[in-house]
Structures are given as structure tokens and as C-alpha cells.
Design a binder for these strands. Structure first.
Length: 476
RNA sequence: GGCCCUAUCGUCUAACGGUUAGGACGAGUGCUUUUCAAGCACUAAAUCCGGGUCCGACUCCCGGUAGGGUCACCA
């Protein structure tokens, strides 16, 4: 069977990480099976629609490399891919149901239905519209919502590719709305019609939809069409572990992670592992490895907590795997302008390994730069006398040591002023002094203005001979 | 309240009746070392509770408990 999956977000704001994981699993499954992945926009709620969302969704997916074979921007055999442009399809199927006597206009006002609901809730019973279903149906004049007449009230059992056998009682069945009074279909109706017309074979979605499945199955029954296979995904919980991760409880816009310097493959890797595992002890995956290894049978059933710390670790592991060129490209995106302009091109590249080496100290590239870790490359450091002091060494001794460093470093020719030579020179002095700390700490501080900094030898090379000697002199 | 889903170290998870309950993140300790990191080694840390079935239960069954979801003219 040719696999067809889809991701069908509604354009109501940014894409958060939970939505992305659903998209990812559907995409992985399609790619693994050499199938088709469709992007469909479910824009049937004009009230909640947020301008610019579609572009945002597309940009988020593109950043992560989740590509689609059919979708709003590229078209496809089942175009259009915006539900608001598919109203004729929904009308056609609605008419089929009306003709079968399985759809009818809702005679009540919204307020009246609200009263029914409140009354049911008050006596602690589930609200069921069908208990108020009219005995005779009016002809639909398009001004009232059109409801589905559930043909048979019964318990449903079905098989889920992830959860196995699922079932629900008859309470899960109700006369839900097919077409709203504004003429747009509801999700419950539209997504089924679209999935039928687009030939979707596997439906992946969050576990919050389990209780709606009987409604869907009942609609498929009414239409005489075989439903697709369902794969239900476990929920992602917030970092407090208490609630399902949602926009309200701090689920971030995925593009925020891009801004902060996370690699898309790291985000994919992390999201893939949030609810799925390969069954062996691998944790770091390339996209291709994920496509090869991913399997619905190994998707978990219980909710997993979002964990920034683990994400940081995975990001770090992916940074380590980058080639020099890729790394340079990535880091340059986040460097402040001063750093890009002020340094000669050749030397700017030298800060790359420094950043790589130290990235794990911070959660991401952006934070590292903002915290001033790299300021000293383009800014003269401020010196504080007490900071220059090392353990019990007097300031005279420090000045002496720094002066010695200046003399020896000055012997190096400009073209030989490279990390290795600088290191040898300073180490020789340090060994003569029989204390590396008494020389290296003051040098480190003089060059960077920091107690904790990258290797002072590399800093010296990047700063160049003149700047290095001048900073040492200034410190004295 | 009805219906539904879930339950292994702090966190993510492995073990599809027989293991000293494994791995990873994080934490701690040590080594290395020019600081902070990184790296390496080691340590602590878990089967929600109660019944059954079985020679044997993390695993199967039942009952609790806890968490989550759902009961929209939202998706």
C-alpha cells in the first residue's frame, strides 16, 4: 500500500514544538515508506485565524527540513490545500448525507444549546446533543448549522497503530456539527472529507483525539467509506510534568529555537525521541538515520516531559558533528557585527573552535555571545586590580611576570605569532618561574579581562602581536 | 460526574514471564589540566499501592490511587 500522510495545522498563530512533533512523525512515516506527505491548512475558523500564520508554519517546517510533496504553496493533484478553498467538496458530501436522511439543520439557537449543556453538566452528566434531536427535520436553508444524524448509537472498537485496541462507549457518539452557520465546515467534517479525497492512509495526531474517533468512524460508516489507519501520539507535557504542553504553558515557537542557535537536526532528533525510541541505545541520529529507524510500533503510550537540558545536550552533540565549514556558517549567523568586521577574515575563523569547545557551558550560541564570553575579541577589557592578583602573589611580582612575558613575546616575529609559538614561549617562562598559574592567570586576565576564559594563547594569536603586547603593558 | 488513555531512577527510556532491572541526560566523586568548559573513570538513584494467576510477575488479570485527555457553530 502506498502510504499517504499529512500534517494539517490551523493558522491560529505560531507553530509550537508539540505541533511540530506530530508533523515530524507523519513525515518520517511517509519518507520511510517512500510515500507522500501532504501539508494542508485547516482554516475553517475565521475568528481564530491569525494573519501571517501560514507563512510562519511554512517557514518553521522549512527550517527543520520537513518537506511536503503536496501543499498550499506548491499545489498537487488534490489542490487546493486550503480548506477555505474546498467548500464545494464539503457541500457535496453534506448533500449526500442529507439525501440519506443523515444530516439535518439544528433548530435551536446557540443559547438554547448552551442551556442544554449547562443543565447536563449541572447534574454531572456528559452533554449529548442527540438527546435533544428534533423528531422531524426541516429543510436546510444554509442559515442554521447542519448536524450529523448519528446512524447507530453503539460502542466502537478499533485498532490504533500505536495504542493497539481502543474502544469507547456510546457516550462518545453525538450529532456533531458538519457545517457551521457561517457556511464553513467543522474540523470533524472537513478533515474527513479531505482525507478521503486526498487518499490519506495514515492519520497521526495527539491523544486528545481518541475520544472523537467514534464520531469519525460513525461518519465513515454513514458514507460507506473505509476509514484510514490511526496512529495516536502520546502527549508532550510541560517541564513541570503536570500539564500537556500548550502555548499557554510556555510551549515555545519553534523559530525561537532557531534564533537561539539550535541546529534544526538537533531539534528533530530531540523531538523524535520525545515519545519514540529505537529500541537500542542510540540517542544521536541524523535525519536519514531517523527515517530508516523510525517505527510506529515503538512510539510510546505515556506522556513525556519537555526537557531543555536534554535538548541542549543533543544540540551540543550535533554541533560536534558539524564540519568546519558548516560550523563557521552556523556560528557566523549569531556573531555580533563588531566581531565580523573588526577581525581580519582569516583570524575570525579562529574563534570558531573556541566557540565549539565552549558552547556546552551555555545552552546555545546566542546566549554565549550575549553573556559577553567573546567581548574581549573586539573590546579592550576593563581591568580591576584585585582580579589581577593571583592567590598570594604580590602585585609587584605580577608586574614582573607580565613584563617578562612582554620581553619574550616581543622576540617572536609577527608572522610567527601563532598559538603554538606563543604557548611554547609562555610555558618556558612559566616553568622557569616554577608556577604556571602565576604567569598564565595574569596573562589570561590581561588579555581577556576574564577569570574564566578560553586558552590565552589562542586569544593572543587572534588579537595579534600589537594588541597582545599593548594589553599586557596596560595591565602592568 | 460519564467515557477514554497512562503509570520503571529527578527526567527520557530499555527489559514483549526467568537479567545483579540496562542505557542516556542531569547530579556527585576522582583523574587530566593554564582558568571555566570539554574529555575519561567511578558512584548514588526506579518497577504507584493492594490482591490474584503462575514453579516464577516490571511484564498477564482484577481493584484502588495518582496524572492526563475529552464531553464547542476550536482544531
Amino acid at each position: 500500500m502506498k502510504v499517504v500522510t499529512r500534517f494539517a495545522p490551523s493558522p491560529t498563530g505560531f507553530m509550537h514544538v508539540g505541533g511540530i512533533r506530530t508533523a515530524l512523525y507523519a513525515w518520517l512515516w511517509a519518507r520511510k515508506n517512500k510515500g507522500t506527505f501532504i501539508l494542508r491548512i485547516e482554516d475553517t475558523d475565521k475568528e481564530r485565524e491569525v494573519a501571517g500564520s501560514i507563512e510562519h508554519i511554512i517557514e518553521s517546517l522549512k527550517w527543520l527540513g520537513i518537506n511536503w510533496d503536496e501543499g498550499p504553496n506548491i499545489g498537487g493533484p488534490n489542490a487546493p490545500y486550503l480548506q477555505s478553498e474546498r467548500l464545494d467538496s464539503y457541500k457535496k458530501y453534506a448533500q449526500i448525507l442529507i439525501d440519506k436522511g443523515l444530516a439535518y439543520p439544528d433548530p435551536y439557537t446557540e443559547e438554547e444549546v448552551g442551556i442544554f449543556r449547562d443543565r447536563a453538566l449541572l447534574v454531572k452528566k456528559p452533554f449529548l446533543y442527540r438527546e435533544h434531536r428534533p423528531e422531524v427535520f426541516d429543510k436546510w436553508d444554509y442559515t442554521k448549522p447542519l448536524r450529523f444524524k448519528t446512524p447507530e448509537i453503539k460502542s466502537y472498537k478499533w485498532n490504533d497503530l500505536v495504542y493497539g485496541d481502543l474502544s469507547a462507549g456510546p457516550e462518545a457518539l453525538d450529532d456533531f456539527i458538519l457545517i457551521k452557520s457561517d457556511g464553513y465546515p467543522t474540523y470533524n467534517f472537513a478533515h474527513i472529507i479531505d482525507d478521503i479525497e486526498m487518499g490519506v492512509t495514515h492519520v497521526m495526531r495527539g491523544q486528545e483525539f481518541i475520544s472523537s474517533v467514534p464520531k469519525f468512524l460513525s461518519l465513515y460508516d454513514a458514507l460507506g467509506i473505509k476509514p484510514p489507519l490511526y496512529a495516536t501520539l502520546p502527549p508532550i507535557m510541560g517541564e513541570d510534568g503536570k500539564k500537556k504542553l500548550g502555548k499557554r504553558d510556555g510551549a515555545k515557537d519553534v523559530l525561537e529555537y532557531r534564533k537561539e542557535g539550535y541546529l534544526p537536526e538537533a531539534m528533530i532528533n530531540f523531538l523524535a525521541l520525545l515519545g519514540w525510541n529505537p529500541g537500542d541505545e542510540r540517542e544521536i541520529f541524523t535525519i536519514d538515520e531517523l527515517i530508516k529507524t523510525f517505527d510506529l510500533s515503538r512510539v510510546g503510550h505515556s506522556g513525556a516531559q519537555w526537557n531543555d537540558v536534554k535538548l541542549n545536550w543533543i544540540n551540543k552533540e550535533h554541533i560536534k558533528k558539524l564540519s568546519k565549514e558548516e560550523l563557521k556558517e552556523n556560528i557566523f549567523k549569531y556573531l555580533p557585527e563588531e566581531l565580523k568586521i573588526d577581525l581580519p577574515a582569516g583570524k575570525a575563523g579562529k574563534i570558531i573552535p573556541i566557540i565549539t569547545e565552549r558552547i556546552s557551558k551555555w545552552s546555545d550560541i546566542k546566549e554565549m555571545i550575549e553573556r559577553g564570553e567573546l567581548d574581549f575579541f573586539y573590546k579592550q577589557p576593563e581591568f580591576f586590580r584585585d582580579k589581577l592578583l593571583y592567590k598570594n602573589i604580590t602585585s609587584e611580582k605580577i608586574s614582573e611576570n607580565l613584563a617578562l612575558a612582554i620581553v619574550e613575546l616581543n622576540k617572536l616575529e609577527e608572522k610567527n605569532f601563532i598559538t603554538e609559538n606563543i604557548k611554547n614561549t609562555l610555558m618556558q617562562i612559566a616553568d622557569r618561574l616554577e608556577s604556571r598559574g602565576e604567569l598564565l592567570h595574569p596573562v589570561r586576565y590581561a588579555l581577556s579581562g576574564l577569570d574564566k576564559s578560553p586558552d590565552p594563547f589562542i586569544i593572543a594569536e587572534i588579537l595579534g602581536k600589537n594588541e597582545t603586547l599593548s594589553r599586557l603593558q596596560k595591565a602592568i
